[in-house]
């Protein structure tokens, strides 16, 4: 227990985090490329076209992992928010704040790919389908978080306000999701589901899983390097930051 507490506290030290993240980031990058390159191969070449949707189903290997990531990142932000509020851990608020733009990007990616996928399937770029609508609202939640935290000047206060907002959002998210689902069945009983209940074939599951693991590793990598830059920026006047700048040389 004591060792755990000591380990936990060491992560609170900016210098320790800067060193550790420098060591961990290349590993995460390596894991990302290790899953992303075969994932890309299987999604574009290695898997057969879908028997109904043809080659357009290949958009799924971007769209679905991006949509999963967007929800995963919001959950991470809420957990980091809880840690910020309970233990006042500086690192947690940095994780939440660097996650927000990444999460917003993945949400945007899910929306754009969903709409590009929808064009050949539905005939229009946008249908008020439950999945896309929830994703759009999730984008609003991400942008709201970013708008709030960037408009508060004091970093600590911004982190704590953002933490409350992320927690409120995460409580609301299932309610929003459920109500949008209910609303869409009410208004469009005959919507063509892009991903029906039908079991996904193995040949499609491989690229899907590879890509979703790749995105997870990518997120871990980017959080590490973004938090690293943020920690350095916040502490740029301190001794350890000067040493970090010095040992790199020219």
């Amino acid at each position: 227990m004591n060792r755990f507490v000591a380990w936990f506290h060491r992560w609170g030290s900016p210098k320790h985090f800067y060193d550790m993240s420098g060591r961990w980031a290349p590993w995460m990058a390596g894991l990302f490329f290790l899953t992303f390159i075969p994932g890309l191969y299987y999604s574009l070449i290695g898997s057969p076209p879908d028997y109904q949707q043809g080659e357009s189903a290949r958009i799924m290997y971007i769209h679905v992992p991006a949509a999963w990531m967007s929800m995963f990142i919001y959950a991470v932000m809420a957990i980091a928010g809880a840690v910020t509020l309970i233990w006042k851990m500086k690192l947690a608020d940095i994780v939440a704040q660097v996650s927000a733009p990444i999460g917003a990007s993945f949400t945007l990616l899910a929306l754009v790919t969903g709409s590009l996928w929808g064009k050949p399937m539905w005939g229009t770029y946008w249908v008020w389908d439950a999945r896309l609508t929830s994703e759009l609202i999730l984008l609003f939640l991400f942008l709201g978080y970013i708008a709030l935290t960037t408009s508060i000047d004091d970093k600590r206060q911004a982190a704590r306000a953002g933490a409350v907002l992320a927690l409120v959002g995460v409580v609301n998210l299932p309610i929003i999701h459920y109500s949008v689902e209910w609303w869409s069945t009410l208004h469009q009983p005959s919507t063509v589901k892009v991903m029906g209940k039908s079991a996904i074939h193995m040949s499609m599951l491989i690229p899907l899983l590879l890509m979703s693991f790749a995105f997870k590793f990518y997120y871990a990598w980017v959080v590490l390097i973004s938090a690293r830059a943020e920690v350095l920026d916040r502490d740029k006047g301190t001794r350890w930051a000067e040493e970090a700048a010095g040992e790199k040389g020219r």
């Binding site: 290949r58 990444i102 754009v112 590009l116 996928w117």
Partner: peptide, 27 residues
């Protein structure tokens, strides 16, 4: 892409751009 190239490639392109952007910015 079986006639779907105009939809498949922009999806992957945007994906790539986003992946690159979030690595380049902190670096």
């Amino acid at each position: 892409m079986g006639g779907y190239g105009a939809f498949v490639w922009p999806s992957y392109l945007l994906g790539f751009l986003i992946l690159i952007a979030h690595v380049a910015a902190p670096a």
